[in-house]
Design a protein around this nucleic acid. Structure first.
Lengths: 228, 228
DNA sequence: TCGTACACCGTACGTCGTACGCTGTACTAT
DNA sequence: ATAGTACAGCGTACGACGTACGGTGTACGA
């Protein structure tokens, strides 16, 4: 018996807001967001259901905290790089984080108040763009555009019915193609056939659109700002 | 008493898969997706909770059907226009539909099998791009990019804490700005201040990124395909 | 007249979030 | 040593949820 626990099951005694939120994320990652119910979360922590409410005011607040941890995991754009590679690094990191935590995407829709990590991250992005010579409104445009792309890509990626490239090829050939009446959907069919044949990599698909957007944004900077 | 109803409360007697799904959408639009529970839906239809299961196998299937109706509301790219305006129309229509039905965005993440309207829509998009001279893989790239932008924009728009432009100005000045420590978040602050001053229109914000992406895609078509 | 199919419903089970009030421990002031 | 107070955690209970199961009345063909 550990010195700390004063009664019954200890289970690495001593909860904390951190431990609660992290365990909730672990559960949501592996079981889906419904797997992270208050009761199951408590059980996973070796505690009673109501104990959680000492560290989190409500389920809503827990979800907000989980989202903010996700933002913690997204690298801000590094300051010592040209703006394109800086933003590319941040976007890539964001996609990875959202792929790791697919439940976060669906959550963003209902949740409106940004947490501190979220704010810090946005500040870093705004700083990067402004210092690269974008005007205030241009920075806002660029942020909307880039964020839309990242979130939308993550959303689509999360709704793909497979996890790995091999699974795709297998599924495309075995399930998808036979179900697609070729006469009714000729273009979808040719596309699915090509995909099944060539394999498919979400990471490089993501890079394609990202580079295209970054390049299109480049000429919208003010000429000769300060650094970079 | 209408001739059709054989017992008790009629409530425009005669359910149907259509009526069920549309009422569910109406409820979700006005009360959020949680407002469209099976019981509340049944109540709104003047029926008992279990009656719904005669038209829909499960809640999951109901949600799938709702999503497919949303795709019904998105105009496919018209065939008689150049590819850019065709795709612009479709994207604009998609944004509008998703703004009308914000619950649909969060749903896409969990739901993997596309309904018939979804398939028809994707086919029309693929057809438009292929006929505009994009190669098979280029069409796929363009679709991913454009869809990512549309979905991501809708996701961000749905998580905005206000509905109208006036609300934004009011909120920016009254709530947002005072909460943002100017020393800690100088760039966010200047951005919020500019937004509060100038007003903000989601529709034109959407158009900005969309036009930029469409223009960036233009040179990726094969030279001299067939029409257009 | 009977039988069968259909449309619909009531009840019940297990789950959920959480309000409320109770425990036992630790620490502080006397 | 004693009393008081704060903290951490729990048990129970309530109303909502999705839905399995087994009705029950009406309509209609034979």
């Amino acid at each position: 018996m550990s010195a700390k626990s004063h009664r019954s099951a200890d289970a690495a005694a001593g909860l904390s807001q951190q431990r609660v939120v992290l365990e909730a994320m672990r559960l949501a990652d592996s079981e889906g967001i419904d797997g992270a119910s208050m009761r199951k979360l408590a059980a996973a922590l070796g505690a009673g259901a109501m104990s959680i409410y000492h560290y989190v005011a409500s389920r809503e607040e827990l979800l907000d905290a989980m989202i903010d941890v996700v933002f913690t995991e997204i690298d801000p754009p590094p300051v010592d790089r040209d703006w394109q590679s800086a933003m590319r690094l941040r976007a890539t990191s964001a996609r990875a984080a959202l792929a790791r935590h697919p439940w976060a995407i669906g959550l963003m829709e209902s949740r409106t108040t940004p947490g501190p990590a979220n704010l810090r991250h946005r500040e870093a992005v705004a700083s990067c763009l402004r210092n690269a010579g974008f005007s205030i409104v241009m920075s806002a445009h660029a942020t909307w555009l880039l964020d839309s792309y990242v979130y939308g890509f993550a959303l689509q990626e999360a709704s793909l019915p497979f996890e790995t490239v091999d699974e795709l090829s297998a599924m495309a050939d075995a399930v998808y193609l036979p179900q697609l009446p070729q006469e009714e959907f000729p273009y979808l069919y040719e596309s699915a056939a090509a995909l099944g044949a060539s394999g498919y990599d979400p990471a490089s698909e993501f890079a394609f659109g990202l580079d295209l957007v970054l390049a299109a944004l480049e000429p919208l900077r003010d000429s000769a700002p300060r650094g970079s």
